[in-house]
């Protein structure tokens, strides 16, 4: 179990992680989702004791990481593909890591086989593809057979087969009762892998809920309604926590009421409605909705607006 309490990391006047509190439970895969620069990696480095929090605490199984007597046997982490001296072979890298905890050579071979690195284990890491580097990082994380596993963007650079492998691996590890904490900026991957989701944006926790709740968007459900009296229906439905948007002639989108409530109001007020469609948000939509104000780097979308004329061009 990982518990963060008011965890904060500031670099100068820029706050990368801003007072986050969350709990990662054992026995399930917890996804850590957020756009680039949201503070995912910083949070994970603080869990591993590599970065010191500016404020707040984070513990693993009740104890700060650095105070564990055998850290690699408690928590395994892939923080960064190629957190490796690239002139060393994968085998020697794992052997040196294992030596710190008297982990037997047999286990080194085990994790090499488990991650499919047997053919390249004796080669220098320098020549590894991104996917192979990820596999080596996962092998290193599993070395101490830890109860808690932290993986930062594990599917980054993996081929489709590798993605499926990681997905099955983390589910299996969680089914064994381990704590699995997995970060990604790919919402589609999270939808398939995670049981619970913590969404972070600009250093703040935006959502922390079972993935089912986030997809159905509790309190965020939208319904498409068509009526021949849209103005009157808007007036009837208006209330606190309800937003009604006129999208087209006779087409409304209602947020904050479920279809049954909408139909009831329409019936009570004798308004004809001829379409009532609940809109289920995909995780992707839910995520975009959650993080739309929190994205640090907005893409500049060119919508065909005229480019300002350059005066005195060449």
């Amino acid at each position: 179990m990982i518990e963060a309490e008011g965890l904060t990391k500031a670099y100068g006047d820029k706050t990368a992680v801003d007072g986050v509190s969350f709990t990662v439970q054992a026995g399930q895969v917890t996804g850590f989702l957020g756009p680039n620069g949201a503070g995912k990696s910083t949070t994970m480095r603080m869990i591993m004791g590599l970065d010191t929090p500016t404020a707040g605490t984070v513990t693993v199984n009740g104890v700060p990481f650095a105070r564990h007597t055998a850290p690699l046997r408690e928590i395994g982490a892939l923080l960064d593909a190629k957190a490796v001296h690239t002139s060393r072979s994968a085998y020697n890298h794992l052997l040196a890591m294992a030596a710190t905890h008297s982990i037997p050579r047999k286990r080194v071979h085990e994790v090499i086989d488990m991650t499919g690195l047997a053919d390249v284990a004796r080669k220098k890491v320098k020549g590894f593809s991104l996917g192979m580097g990820q596999r080596l990082g996962i092998a290193a994380a599993l070395l101490g057979d830890p109860q808690t596993i932290i993986l930062d963007e594990p599917v980054n650079g993996l081929d489709p087969e590798g993605v499926v492998w990681v997905r099955n691996l983390v589910k299996y590890l969680a089914s064994e009762g381990r704590t699995v904490f997995l970060s990604s900026h790919l919402m589609s991957e999270m939808a398939l892998t995670a049981d619970h989701l913590i969404v972070i944006g600009r250093g703040k926790i935006i959502a922390d809920a079972p993935i089912k709740d986030i997809i159905t968007g509790k309190g965020q459900s939208r319904t498409r309604v068509r009526s021949d009296q849209p103005d009157r229906l808007m007036h009837v439905l208006a209330g606190t926590g309800v937003s009604v948007e006129l999208q087209d002639h006779e087409l409304l989108e209602v947020t904050g009421l479920d279809p049954r409530q909408i139909a009831r109001s329409a019936l009570d007020n004798h308004v004809l409605i001829y379409e009532l469609t609940p809109l289920q948000a995909s995780l992707e939509e839910a995520y975009m909705e959650l993080t739309k104000d929190e994205v640090e780097y907005h893409s500049l979308i060119t919508t065909g607006a005229p480019v300002p004329a350059q005066s005195g061009g060449n």
């Binding site: 054992a26 026995g27 055998a70 046997r73 905890h101 009762g177």
Partner: peptide
């Protein structure tokens, strides 16, 4: 939620050998 895997029946108080100085020295030598 703990399944029948290795993790479930591990003694939490004694997870196994940790980084003693001679182990770390051995690692640095490797």
């Amino acid at each position: 939620a703990a399944g029948p895997g290795r993790a479930a029946h591990r003694n939490a108080a004694n997870p196994g050998p940790g980084p003693s100085f001679f182990r770390v020295l051995n690692s640095e030598f490797i």
